[in-house]
Design a protein around this nucleic acid. Structure first.
Length: 630
DNA sequence: GGTCATCCCGCCCTCTGCTGGGATAAA
DNA sequence: ATTTATCCCAGCAGAGGGCGGGATGACC
């Protein structure tokens, strides 16, 4: 894979170093004594970094339940939930005392301590630091214990606030004094009043100029389990609530290699196998190895075709029950529990909603390493990479043309190799177009209302739609709007009138350089030159289609053919022949005029070099040395 | 420890729409 | 002959559907 996922939260968790590692000079001393980072994270920072999906997935039912309890005797083990402040409220101040003390204080210096967890509050806390202070390499996993104060519930606003007895407005956290104790045997027993925080360091949005610390996975043991993913709330709402054992001290088993924690040793041990490369269970059919018997069994089922979970509404069958449930939702029940809060989209699977959310946020986590393109999912990036590799995996079975996408091949086959090619009729005119997209182009070009009027080139009419203009201009097509003021002659085109006017003025602007003969039209001069001055010119012979008699002139042959009974030629019906006949007619006219002119010329100066034919502009003067006898 | 249900990631597919280049007809 | 307009076509990306399969929590 050539792409890299750039917005996935870093797996690197951090330990805030001892205070001697924190250069105080890099933090600006504020008047109130709190040290402020260079700049607070932007409103969107936290969301972009949130590793658990869309925020709206946290349903209102969760917000109405206490996340923190206030029982004094209860020992709280807190795993921090995905957190960020959407406002500029998070500041961090390392204190130069024993242990690391982290101060979270409201930017405006407000008196209220901040750890908003209730409704309306973003479920994330991000702390921006200058990279010079806490570099990624300097940070490791840490535990922070609340030294002072307890947990109080701010019931009046249904918000839950960590309040501190001695330091209102400040939440002081200190590095655990005995980490080994906490980690011993995969678990720990936090002391009364302590809280456990995990701090994650991720690069900020400013290209590495700052680091965002995300305090994550706030969770009170004994509460209803809340889905870490934002997409699971719909199913969770139906899950039965577990009996609360407030007095019971629970052990948490935490993986050293990743963030995994579990209260059950069996789950923990099973998880630890995921970090092992050992795969003792081997498929006897293909020798592929698996970590667990269950995985092996499912795999073997793919060989044997064993699909024990059959759909009652169709012929599909699946290896696992989950696949059957999902299939039934897609095909039969159409139940879509995962609903987008920003539009009407709903999906069967959480991952689909997560992918859909990117169409709202514009997030493109998958960056092409060869160009600036970034994709919203892996498949699009993979497909895009074909534009760099030139790979065309889809081949037409008929003409063997190759294509980069299957859809392109499908269109190709329909348009090129199918009998019933679909056509798209324009709703505004008679045009029929092969492709829907081309019909849209047609509509855009010809039937779109234009603010500025388009004027007819023949009259004063004006139109806002191009199609109407073109239709109107066609009405001028057979209109002989150019009328001669000297006779009754009229024509459609101005250039024809220009030539006609010369018959009244006697002008002949086209002069033969070989014999100085002048002509009113250029093509007459050309015909003359070929006939009298071009030795290589072979005159056309027009043969009678019936008797074969040859004529030098097409008109003579036609007159003969009528008498001979040959009638019009066979090919006269086709447009191409019609165009040829028009050309012949022009040539006939030229020859006829040439004949008349030739009678008047007594001398043909064949000895003169043909040279260049110089047209004389209308009303102009012939070049020096060239005489006009017309 | 085994099993089941669920969650979640990843892969592949289709449908859709836009764009630009080449071919062709019309002006 | 040249220019302009239109059509045809392939390339490419956005969005979403469907499924395979690994990981994990809960239960027995």
């Amino acid at each position: 894979m050539a792409g890299t996922e750039i917005s996935v939260p870093s797996e690197q968790f951090t330990k805030i170093k001892a205070p001697e590692l924190v250069p105080e000079v890099l933090l600006e001393e504020e008047e109130d004594g709190a040290c402020r980072g260079r700049e607070p994270p932007g409103p969107g920072d936290g969301q972009a970094l949130c590793p658990y999906g869309p925020l709206q997935a946290k349903g209102p039912e969760r917000e109405q339940e206490p996340l923190l309890t206030t029982e004094e005797s209860e020992k709280h083990v807190l795993t921090l939930q995905t957190v960020h402040f959407s406002e500029d409220v998070s500041w961090l101040s390392p204190q130069p005392q024993d242990g690391v003390q982290v101060t979270i204080q409201q930017a405006g210096g407000g008196p209220q301590p901040l750890l908003w967890l209730g409704e309306g509050a973003p479920p994330c806390v991000t702390i921006s630091l200058q990279e010079e202070v806490y570099s990624l390499q300097e940070m490791q996993v840490m535990e922070l214990h609340v030294l002072e104060g307890g947990l109080a519930r701010a019931s009046e606003e249904s918000k839950f606030v960590v309040s501190l007895a001695e330091s209102p407005g400040l939440l002081k956290l200190e590095k655990g004094q005995d980490e080994d104790r906490l980690l011993a045997e995969g678990g720990f027993e936090p002391q009364a009043g302590e809280q456990l925080f995990l701090v994650e360091a991720t690069p900020g949005d400013e290209g590495g100029e700052e680091i965002v610390l995300t305090i994550s996975n706030l969770h009170v043991e004994g509460q209803e389990d809340t889905p870490a993913s934002g997409q699971g709330h719909a199913d969770k709402a139906d899950s039965p609530k577990k009996p609360k054992k407030a007095k019971e001290v629970k052990r948490t088993f935490r993986c050293d290699s990743c963030m995994f924690t579990s209260s059950r040793i069996s789950s923990f041990n099973r998880h630890m196998k995921t970090h092992s490369t050992e795969k003792p269970h081997m498929c006897h059919l293909c020798l592929k190895a698996f970590r667990t018997v269950t995985l092996l069994r499912n795999h073997v089922n793919t060989h044997t075709g064993t699909r024990p979970y059959k759909c009652g509404d169709c012929d599909m069958a699946f290896v696992t029950s989950g696949e059957l449930v999902r299939h039934r939702r897609y095909k039969h029940t159409h139940e879509k529990p995962f609903k987008c809060s920003m539009c009407k989209y709903a999906s069967v699977e959480a991952s689909k909603l997560k992918r859909h959310i990117r169409s709202h946020t514009g997030e493109r986590p998958f960056q092409c390493l060869l160009c600036s393109y970034a994709s919203k999912d892996t498949y699009k990036l993979k497909r895009h990479m074909r534009t760099h590799s030139g790979e065309k995996p889809y081949e037409c079975h008929v003409c063997h043309a190759r294509f980069t996408q299957s859809g392109t091949l499908k269109i190709h086959i329909v348009q090129k190799h199918s009998e019933n090619v679909p056509k798209y009729q324009c709703p505004h005119c008679a045009t029929v177009i092969a492709r829907k997209s081309d019909l849209r182009v047609h509509l855009r070009n010809l039937h779109t209302y234009k603010a500025t009027e388009m004027k007819c080139r023949c009259c004063s009419a004006a139109f806002h739609e191009r199609y109407a203009l073109i239709q109107h201009q066609k009405t001028h097509k057979n209109e002989k709007r150019f009328k001669c003021e000297h006779c009754s002659y009229a024509c459609e085109q101005e250039r024809h009138m220009t030539v006609h006017i010369r018959t009244h003025t006697g002008e002949k602007p086209f002069t033969c350089l070989s014999c100085s003969k002048c002509f009113r039209q250029k093509q007459l001069l050309n015909a003359h030159f070929k006939k009298y001055h071009d030795a290589s010119f072979i005159p056309a012979v027009h043969g009678c289609p019936k008797c074969g008699k040859g004529f030098s002139r097409w008109s003579n042959m036609q007159r003969h053919s009528v008498k001979c009974g040959a009638g019009p030629g066979k090919a006269a019906a086709s447009g191409k022949v019609r165009r040829t006949k028009r050309k012949l007619a022009v040539r006939k006219e030229a020859i006829q005029e040439d004949e008349v002119a030739a009678k008047k010329v007594s001398t043909v100066r064949l000895e003169q070099c043909p040279g260049e034919v110089v047209p004389v502009p209308y009303g102009g003067v012939a070049p020096e040395g060239v005489t006009c006898d017309g």
